[in-house]
Write a protein that binds this DNA or RNA. Structure first.
Lengths: 217, 217
DNA sequence: AAAATTAATTAGTCATGCCTAATTTTGTCT
DNA sequence: AGACAAAATTAGGCATGACTAATTAATTTT
């Protein structure tokens, strides 16, 4: 139906909009590691295909059709991630890259069959909700660790950054979905955070780290 | 490592050579449903990349490198077919098309993990042997139904043609891997064959049909 | 062997999706 | 408002992998 590139653009625009950011030429270019000039070309083509609307003021916006398509791709991505983790025993940091390829496999009911085979999971291994066959998606009231008030026990429910270095760092810290974290204090000097992870001794993590972990009280 | 097109050319050349046919420009073009002129272009590029040797007399031949690559793709194709059939419950005639896409997914140990998850199957759902991690592959002493002498009971072990219409016809006849078939007689007039399938009443099948089913005595 | 047919190749195009370099538009700062 | 910086766009190219049309080479037929 759509090309690999188109699907990747749809995902990028979806993610930016979902994060409340403007899907500008440069933001999309940064996310896809493409040249802004290439993005302009592609956005024009996608506009003609009625996948997006575009004006410089508000950036790219998914049309109903674009949104639906993006959700299908994201659904497949997250289902495959679940498969890779649960069935093939791939680790947290390896699954994203493979799912980036698998998400583009086209077949009418592949996602639904996979979904059924996996037992209709609601979340992928990174804690992101999996869009259901009807397009609905579980909502999570997640905040980043950096937004958590001090002293309140919380649980890790997901990650914002799913890059390999970040996930490997998490693995080293033995932090995963469900890990309990309490913020002890914030260091004013460099905004780093002193936290208690499970029942271990206190550690300091950077602000950047804290901004990329989702927790729930 | 290699592009989707290159992998498809490798597969086509492998299959032709394996069937004892000359991988000529036109044979490859027919198999890939491409224009012969396009094939000439591509073969030149693949020769430069040392995936094949080519001379007009003997057609294209896989180099060691090309052969190894082709086997990896075929291994992935057949493992995914097994997965689609066994785990996602896709029917015989649907799996090929999806596996055509899945076979191009790239990751160092994906095939091996999938192989392990599936319990190291030796044959795919169409009866074709799955190349193992070391490149070895089970050999089958299969003949086509058309080569079977009359009166000898045999069992279906695979299909040569894996097109959707053929597989759907088989499904209609309730013929699958393991089905018992005995040739009763060959009709001289049009070379069609009278056969007994399992314990059912005799049926007549065309020569073309018989040439595309593999059996073993 | 000449003619006819089939196969292979060359030459020239095209769509896709990228790129760089140059230019224009927009936004911000003083 | 004017100057500077950042963002967006245009123009021109390029690699990939297809295509058509025309040509050359190889096989068959007669």
């Amino acid at each position: 139906m759509y090309t690999l590139s188109e699907e990747n653009y749809l995902k990028a625009i979806y993610r930016l909009s979902d994060d409340g950011l403007k899907a500008s030429t440069s933001a999309i270019a940064a996310m896809l590691e493409n040249n802004p000039a290439s993005v302009v070309d592609m956005l024009k083509k996608m506009k003609k295909k009625r996948l997006i609307d575009y004006d410089k003021k508000s950036g790219a916006q998914l049309t109903t059709k674009g949104h639906k398509t993006a959700l299908i791709v994201i659904r497949k991505h997250r289902l495959w991630e679940f498969f890779l983790h649960e069935k093939l025993r791939y680790s947290w940091d390896e699954i994203h890259e493979i799912a980036e390829q698998l998400e583009h496999i086209q077949h009418p009911d592949l996602a639904d069959r996979l979904d059924k085979f996996l037992g209709f999971p609601k979340f992928d291994p990174h804690g992101d909700p999996i869009p259901q066959a009807d397009g609905k998606m579980a909502k999570t009231s997640k905040i980043t660790l950096s937004e958590l008030p001090a002293g309140r026990p919380s649980q890790v429910v997901g990650v914002k950054d799913s890059s390999v270095p970040f996930l490997q760092y998490l693995q080293k810290l033995d932090v995963g979905i469900g890990t309990k974290i309490t913020l002890i204090e914030t260091i004013t000097y460099d905004s780093s955070l002193v936290v208690k992870i499970e029942k271990r001794s206190q550690t300091t993590v950077s602000r950047r780290f804290a901004e990329n972990i989702y927790v729930q009280e």
